[in-house]
Design a protein around this nucleic acid. Structure first.
Lengths: 252, 252
DNA sequence: CGAATCCTTGAACACCTTCAACAGGGGTGG
DNA sequence: CCACCCCTGTTGAAGGTGTTCAAGGATTCG
C-alpha cells in the first residue's frame, strides 16, 4: 500500500523542533527557551519504519518513548495462545510507549500500518536530567494522566455501547484527530483494516463491515475500502453518543 | 453496613510511615533515608471517609493523590444523562486520583464503599519539590505507567471475554489483592454490590447474579451475598483465563 | 414490623457472532 | 499485459450469549 496519507510537513529532516507541529501537541512546555533547547536535543532522533515493521516488540527493553510524526502505528498486546489484541492506534502528534515505564520493558508491540516517521525520546534522559527537565517531566506526567483518562473513556465504550455506537465513536475520533492535524475531517484514508478495527472495538470483522454498509445506506458516509468520506458529521457524532469533550477523540 | 473487613494494621494514628505496609506498596523508594523523611512528611495527612461519602467529586480541583489504607473506594465516571459508570475499585495499598493530573481537575468521583481510611499526598508537593523528590516523581511515573498497563488489560477483558470469564477474573483479582494485603485469598467480604460489579464488568446485574449461582452449583465457590468463600481457587483462575502474571490482579 | 434495598430466578427477545460463500482489488508471475 | 491467486471485504443465515422485563425472596435498617 502506498503512503496515501498526505503529509502536512516537509520531508526535509532539517526542520527545527519548534516548527514541528508535533512540538506543541506532544510536549507543550511553554515559552521557556531553556526547555526548548533541551527538547530539541532530546527529540532530535528520528526513525523511519515501513509498513509491517515493528517499532518495538513485546519484551524489548524500554529505550525510547515515541511520538508519531507521520503515518500511523498500531499497538498490540500479545495474548497467550498467540492471538493479538489491538490496544491502540497512534496518529501523528500522538505518543506511545509510556505503558512500558513501569516494567522498563515493552509489554505491547508497536507495528507500523504504513510508512511512518517517529521521534525517539530517550526515556533515560527524561528521567535522569535534573530539575532543568522538571517541566518536561511534569509534561510527561500530564501526558500519562491523559492516557489513563482516555483508557477509561474507551472502557466506557466497551462496556455498554452497541456495535454501531462503537464504530461511530471510532470514526468520529479519527475525524477529529485528522482534523487536528490539518487534514479534512470529512474525508480521509484509514490505515487499518476492518479486522483490526473489529479487534480494537471488541467486534467481529463481519459486524464492522455490516455497519459500514448500514451507515452508507443511511447516507451518513461513503466507504470504499479504506477511503472514508463522511457526509453527515453531525449524525456520526450523534450516533457515537459521546460527550462533546474533545478529549474523547484521543481515547478511541 | 459494618466495616466487616478486618484491619491488619493498628487503628493508632501514630504509626510510622515506614511501618505502614502501604509504604512499600505505593511508593517503594528504596533505602534512601532522605526520601523516607520526605515521604513521611508528604504522606502524613490522613482522612477518614464513611460509607457513601465522597473522597472527591467530578469537577473538584486536584489537590491530593490518594492511597487507600483500609476499607475500599469505588471510582465512577459521570455520564451524560446522569448515569454513572464504575471505573475502578480501590483496595488498601492502591492509589487513585492520578487520572486528574492532566486537567488538574477530577473527572471521576471517588465514593467510599465502607468506612475507609486514606493517605492524602498533596500533588503540588510531589510536583514542586526539587530533585530531592525526583525519585518519588520517578515512582509516580511508574505507578501511572502501571495503571495504564492495567487499564489495557481490563480492556482486553471487556473486548473478548465472556461474562463468566469476566466475573471469574474479577474474583480472582480480588482474591490476589486481598491476599497481598495479608488476608485470606479464599474467603473475604466484598464491599461492592452485584449491580456495581456488573456496571464495572459491562454486564447486567442479573447476569452477575446468575453467574454467582452457576459458580456455586459448579462447586467453585460459596457466595452468601457479599461474603465469598472460594473452594477451588485453581478452577477460578482457570475460568478467568488470564496470564498468570500477577500484574493482572490490579487491573481488574 | 414495615419499607427499602439487594439479590435471585424465569422467560422472551435482541444483538452480535459464527459459519459459509462469494465478490473485488492488488500484486505477482508468466 | 493479462491471468491468476491471495487477501480483504461483503453479505446471508443460523445460533448463542447476554439483556430486558417481570416477579418474588431475602436482608437490613428505621
Amino acid at each position: 500500500m502506498l503512503d496515501t496519507q498526505p503529509s502536512p510537513e516537509s520531508q526535509d529532516d532539517g526542520i527545527a523542533c519548534k516548527d514541528c507541529s508535533l512540538f506543541q501537541l506532544c510536549l507543550p512546555v511553554g515559552p521557556g527557551e531553556a526547555d526548548l533547547e533541551l527538547l530539541k536535543r532530546v527529540t532530535k532522533r528520528r526513525r523511519l519504519v515501513r509498513r509491517g515493521e515493528y517499532l518495538y516488540r513485546p519484551g524489548e527493553p524500554l529505550v525510547f518513548i515515541y511520538a508519531v510524526k507521520s503515518g500511523s502505528v498500531m499497538s498490540t498486546i500479545l495474548l497467550e495462545g498467540g492471538s493479538r489484541q489491538v490496544s491502540g492506534f497512534h496518529l501523528p502528534g500522538e505518543m506511545l510507549g509510556t505503558d512500558a515505564i513501569n516494567a522498563g520493558v515493552h509489554g505491547c508491540g508497536a507495528l507500523a500500518l504504513e510508512t511512518t516517521s517517529v521521534c525517539e525520546l530517550p526515556f533515560s534522559s527524561l528521567e535522569d536530567l535534573g530539575d532543568v527537565v522538571s517541566s518536561v517531566q511534569r509534561q510527561l506526567l500530564r501526558i500519562m494522566s491523559k492516557q489513563i483518562l482516555h483508557d477509561q473513556m474507551l472502557q466506557v465504550l466497551l462496556r455498554k455501547r452497541s456495535a454501531a455506537e462503537r464504530l461511530a465513536a471510532f470514526l468520529a475520533s479519527l475525524s477529529v484527530r485528522f482534523n487536528r492535524r490539518g487534514f479534512s475531517s470529512q474525508e480521509f484514508n484509514m490505515s487499518m483494516s476492518r479486522e483490526q478495527i473489529g479487534n480494537y472495538l471488541g467486534l467481529a470483522e463481519e459486524t464492522v463491515s455490516r455497519l459500514f454498509s448500514r451507515f452508507q445506506e443511511g447516507g451518513v458516509l461513503t466507504a470504499k475500502r479504506k477511503h472514508i468520506r463522511i457526509h453527515d458529521l453531525e449524525a456520526l457524532h450523534a450516533a457515537a453518543r459521546l460527550p462533546k469533550d474533545l478529549e474523547w477523540a484521543n481515547a478511541i
